[in-house]
Nucleic acid binder design. Sequence first.
DNA 1: AAGTTCTTCAACCGCACCCTT
DNA 2: TAAGGGTGCGGTTGAAGAACT
Length: 255
Amino acid sequence: MVKTPFYDKNGLKKGAWSAEEDNILRAYIQKLGHSNWRKLPKSAGLSRCGKSCRLRWMNYLRPNVKLGNYTEEEDLLITKLHGELGNKWSMIATRLPGRTDNEIKNHWHTHLKNRTKKMSTPISKGKDQSAGKIYRRREADQVGIKEAENDICSEPYYQILESFSLSPETCPVEFSSLSCSENRHVSMEEDCFATLETLEQSFENFWTEPFLMEDTYIQTKYPASLPEGEFSQSSSCFNDGIDLIHQVIQELPEN
DNA sequence: AAGTTCTTCAACCGCACCCTT
DNA sequence: TAAGGGTGCGGTTGAAGAACT
């Protein structure tokens, strides 16, 4: 699903990146950083333009980037933020640690836009072929066939939380510092949010389950490749994301 | 089984903004 | 203050693969 590589009139390679190119770019940035994207490809020995290198690094090669496997809470967060901010993908991305603007944008257009549109229209018993198909094809692989068989588009918006579970992969390390009492401030109607316990359990499971400490990874493996600001920024973003998830939960309808 | 249609998403493009000179 | 270069952002494209007929 990638563009076939080719060379433009200036001899610059376009299209899909090869593993070799990825390795070259990654190794170069690990060693020398990326102070100047325009000069970088020439210095690194890549036949790419600086913008292409930047995009590749930012969206796929950065050590803390998460790919695919969107969870329901992330979907919910994106939907909410899009409602507040519009197509400010970069702003939205700052609230979802590890996610890039490009990926969020794609995810919105392929999964969430249709879902949200459907939710705002009267409930239909008819099957939305395209949305159903999308969900069946992609998310079935990730969240299970059982969920995929349901027509999620016809469900009330808040029921998206029915499968609410915080996966270790989704949750950054900062989540583990949340106090349990803070989570317990969330109150909901039992019939709507019978899964609250599940949610709390998920947090607790999350504390006990092993996961990759991405920042640690960065700092140990890529000590000189990233500006310090990126770490502090991402940390604050993580906390913002936590706040927002709490806010989303509290703002949900009571029935 | 083969052809067609649909869906996805990595990557490109153009524009706007920011910074330096 | 203007000009030029670099970077970031959002919209769009297009090829691959899945689903459908």
